[in-house]
Amino acid sequence: MFEEHLYIGISDLKSLLFSIKMQKGIDFSEYALSSLKRRVENFMKRFHFKDIDELSHKIIKDEYFFELFLKDILVDTTELFRDPEFWIELRRLSFFKFRKLNSFKIFIPDSNSGEDLFSILIMLKNEELIDKSEIVLSSLSKLNIEKIQKATIETKKMEVNIANFEKIYENGNIYDFFQEKGHVVKFKKELLNNVKIIKHNFFSDELSGMYHLILFRNKAIYYNPQLKIKALNILKEHLITGGFIALGIKEQLEYPGSENEFEAISETEKIYKKIF
């Protein structure tokens, strides 16, 4: 009735992460290890690896396999308009500012699925702000970038997406933004005109540009506390004063000195304004 699960220890995990860092230049050692451990175990199970050395060997030797590994261990957002209350607050608190500008920039860092991207695009289109916007989405994973560029969502996942959407746009129709194609729906291509998707290692590659809004929701939950602070310190340098950053609703923007640099403009929806 129950399959045997495969379990690895923290020392196994750390040795794998060390090899990846040395051979591939990507450092996962400061990720939240409890959930990462489970995703590595699931990956090993899926590809029938017996131990960590076997996996380590394969991903170091085989570039495509390493990309498969990255795709699996980097996590998706899971739904369009996750937390509809957040999107309503974001619109209320930031869009009037965007209206006054000739153009504005939005950054979605370290992203592995298109849901937050499609959600903000739908909202910008509905509010007639999309032509003024420029959006950059970055991801570590080539395969996730390809997936986001394809811009498709499985039809079976649309039920929850529609429920969320209708909490924001009671009389709206989500299919104004998608085309149905068999078992998937495809996000309309013309809505992606002002979007740039880049392969980027957030912690080691140079980042350029200043942004008016950064969507960083439910990303730092996969980092340990030290890495989260590093990420926030990088992001704040790329946020204009008066710009906004959004975290997940169960995250805190806290690091030494953060109260002098950010003001929580929505405590419940975790929207912060850079004040310094």
Partner: peptide, 10 residues
């Protein structure tokens, strides 16, 4: 480990 809670959206 370190005795804190980690959430996930997996």
């Amino acid at each position: 480990l370190g005795n804190y809670i980690a959430l996930s959206t997996e």
